[in-house]
Design a binder for these strands. Sequence first.
DNA 1: GCTTCGAAGTTTAGTTTCGAACTCTTCAGA
DNA 2: TCTGAAGAGTTCGAAACTAAACTTCGAAGC
Lengths: 182, 182
Amino acid sequence: MGDIPDAGEPTLEEQIAAYQREFQGLDPQVEKIVSALSRLNRRMNVAYGRQTAELGISNAEWEVLKALVLSGAPYRMGPSDLAKRLGLTPAAMTHRIDRMVAEGLVHRERDESNRVRVIIELTSEGREKWLEAMRLASVFEEDLLQDLTPAERAVLGEVLTRLLRRVEHAQPDAGGRLNDLE
Amino acid sequence: MGDIPDAGEPTLEEQIAAYQREFQGLDPQVEKIVSALSRLNRRMNVAYGRQTAELGISNAEWEVLKALVLSGAPYRMGPSDLAKRLGLTPAAMTHRIDRMVAEGLVHRERDESNRVRVIIELTSEGREKWLEAMRLASVFEEDLLQDLTPAERAVLGEVLTRLLRRVEHAQPDAGGRLNDLE
DNA sequence: GCTTCGAAGTTTAGTTTCGAACTCTTCAGA
DNA sequence: TCTGAAGAGTTCGAAACTAAACTTCGAAGC
């Protein structure tokens, strides 16, 4: 027990070996980094999902709460802004807000100064839910990184930030290469 | 232009600052690592999606092709195994296979030696699609990591693998702490 | 041999999302 | 003022997923 990472999933080492076998000319180190990154993220999302589920909210709802809290007091955003921020279509946002209003996590009202707009505002209950979720998440995250030395944390943070900047300011073209967007 | 990472999304630094403001007692370095990890993964998936879309397949289909190829010749798996491997319910797997059979990417047949089972086998067309996708993906990945020094690559790979092992062999309990499953 | 249990896959009902059409409001220009 | 255009949000229909019920086959026990 404990040796099988997930049902039917090969270990990272087995997967790298399989890639080498099936596709020539692949750098094992690159593939290791990319595969580990992807898996790690997946596992972390599962962990977050477990935690939020215990608070009676879904991962999707947690994302909305997060966006609202991080926008700062008075914790208000329009549906379109939320949709862009979360990468959803406006239609999906409408439905998601419907649910969250019904659960008392957010409040929806029409902006009287511009009657086309709608204001989504965090309720105190919604803010409390987010705080509870953050308490759980922060303990989990600290625990996850606990074995890393200060030097390793520094390098990891710096390198990931650099990679992120590279992806954010560039997008792959048809051939897969990253072109600077200027 | 090029300074706005994504529509309406704050920069990583702004987001960390917002976390510090809204939630006391958070380690900025931990949050930086976790946030960068999550964002980086999201951007990479968008990039992969763009590439596979160009080949006329979805990201979901690419995952199935990947599982089959990595299983090794003769590239056969049962629907249940595929579902477990991809983290889907058997029902979703049935439908996904339906589509892929219609597109000629995989072949479905009943196992005559055990008539409860079904065998999903990669077609040569499916294998070719995967190879094309891999060619694009590997260029993208090499390009993404191109600015990293050999030392940085080594540390990154090692640290990520260590973190992955920690999440894989342990699961957070109600309080968020990681317990060894033994 | 018959029965029961369990495993593999499909079907059905309900949820969440996307794409596109639609409504309502605001603003610019004749 | 009236009209046209654009933006914000919702509604509608279709796609993809989950959970649960169902079907079929195989294996074990009596």
